[in-house]
Amino acid sequence: MQSNALSHVESSVMQHFNDVGFMSQLREQMIRFTQTQLRDAEIAEDIVQEALLGAVKNLKAFAGRAAFRSWVFAMLKNKMIDHIRKQGRAPATQSIDAEEFNAKGSWQQEAKPMPWQCPEAGLKQEQFMVILELCLNKLPGNQAQVFMMREFLGLACAEICTEVDITESNLHVLLYRARMNLQKCMANNWLHDDRQATLQKSIKNNLMNTIKKGR
C-alpha cells in the first residue's frame, strides 16, 4: 500500500508542477525575492532551481496552491540562508536622512502615516505580496537586502551584521529606513486603490442623482 500512498503524493505534487501558468508565476516571484539578496541573476536562478528540486525531493501531499507555494518558499528561504552564510557580503553604505520630519522631529504633513486597513475587504495575502514586491524594488541601496534578511529569512541582528559587515547601529538605521519607505510606499498604493474606489462611487452617485433629478 505504500506505493499507492507515494503515488498519491506524487500526483499531488505533479498537479502543481503541471500547472504551467502557476509554476512560471511562482518561479518569477521566487527569483524576484532571491534577487533582493543576490544581485547576480544567474545565481538567483540556480538557487530557485535548487529550492524547486528540494520541494520535489521532499515529496509531500499538498491540498492547494497556497500550501504548495509556502512549502516551496520555505525551501527557498533555507537555500538563501545557506548561500548567504557561505558567501559573506560586500560592505554597506547608507546615509541617514529623515525628510519625513521637521526640525522639531514631528511628522511633516505629507509624511504622516495613515492606517493601512482597507475598510471592508482587507487585503488578501496575494495582493499584499504583490505590492510589497513592488515597494521592495524601490528601496535604495541595500535596504531591501537587510529588510528581507530580517523579516523574511528571520535572521538575528547579530548574524545580519556579520554577513553584511555593518555595525549594529548601522543595521538599525537601515531597517528603520526600509520600514519607513515601505510603510510610505504601501500606504500610497493601498490608499490609492481606496481613493479610486471612493471616487468611482461618488461619481456613480452623482450620476445617479443627476439622472433622478432629470426625470
Binding site: 509556502s70 512549502w71 518558499f73 520555505a74 493601512w116 504601501m186
Partner: peptide
C-alpha cells in the same frame, strides 16, 4: 499608525511563509 503598519508588515511576511491566509 506607523507602529501598527510596520508590525503588520512583519506579520504578513510571516503568515505568507506559513501559508496562513
Amino acid at each position: 499608525n506607523f507602529s501598527k503598519n510596520i508590525e503588520q508588515l512583519s506579520d504578513s511576511m510571516q503568515s505568507f511563509l506559513s501559508g496562513d491566509d
